[in-house]
Lab assay of single mutants.
Amino acid sequence: HMTFVALYDYVASGETDLSFKKGERLQIVNNTEGDWALAHSLTTGRTGYIPSNYVAPSD
């Protein structure tokens, strides 16, 4: 899985969403939902949907 870094803070709007903080590292599990991606946080160990425009690929 590619690793991504959060560009902004995001507060989950539902139970299936994943909250994260700017700078948090995430792995995209499934990116077939258009503007949303299923992601796993390497920081918190949690998995949920995130807005895909809130993250960018990290080196």
Rank of each mutant, 00 (worst) to 15 (best):
H1D: 10
H1Y: 14
H1E: 11
M2K: 12
T3E: 11
T3R: 06
F4M: 10
F4V: 14
F4I: 05
F4K: 03
V5D: 03
V5L: 08
V5A: 03
V5I: 14
V5T: 09
A6I: 04
A6N: 01
A6S: 05
L7C: 11
L7M: 09
Y8L: 08
Y8M: 10
Y8Q: 08
D9Q: 03
D9Y: 02
D9N: 06
Y10T: 00
Y10P: 00
Y10V: 02
V11L: 08
V11H: 09
A12E: 04
A12M: 04
A12L: 03
G14Y: 09
E15L: 11
E15T: 11
T16C: 15
T16Y: 15
D17A: 09
D17V: 07
D17G: 15
D17H: 14
D17P: 03
D17E: 15
L18Q: 03
L18P: 06
S19P: 05
S19M: 07
F20A: 02
F20I: 10
F20N: 00
K21R: 11
K21Q: 10
K21L: 09
K21T: 09
K21C: 11
K22H: 04
G23N: 05
G23P: 00
G23V: 01
E24I: 01
E24F: 02
E24S: 01
E24D: 11
E24K: 00
R25A: 08
L26I: 10
L26A: 00
Q27M: 14
Q27A: 09
I28V: 08
I28K: 03
I28E: 00
V29K: 08
N30M: 14
N30A: 14
N30P: 07
N31T: 12
N31M: 14
N31A: 12
N31C: 15
T32F: 14
T32R: 10
T32H: 11
E33R: 11
E33Q: 12
E33W: 13
G34E: 07
G34Q: 07
D35A: 13
D35K: 12
W36P: 02
W36A: 03
W36T: 05
A37D: 03
L38A: 02
L38C: 14
L38S: 01
L38D: 00
L38H: 04
A39F: 05
A39Y: 06
H40R: 14
H40F: 13
S41Y: 00
S41G: 01
S41R: 01
S41K: 01
L42G: 02
L42Q: 06
L42R: 03
L42W: 06
L42T: 05
L42N: 03
T43S: 10
T43A: 10
T44N: 04
T44F: 02
G45K: 06
G45Y: 04
G45W: 03
R46K: 12
R46L: 11
R46N: 08
R46E: 07
T47M: 09
G48P: 00
G48I: 01
G48V: 02
Y49N: 05
I50E: 00
I50P: 00
P51E: 01
P51A: 02
S52Q: 09
S52G: 06
N53G: 12
N53F: 11
N53P: 06
Y54C: 09
Y54E: 02
Y54Q: 05
Y54N: 03
A56F: 10
A56Q: 11
A56P: 10
A56G: 10
A56E: 09
P57Q: 10
P57Y: 12
P57R: 10
S58D: 14
S58R: 07
S58G: 09
S58A: 14
D59A: 12
D59V: 13
D59G: 12
D59P: 13
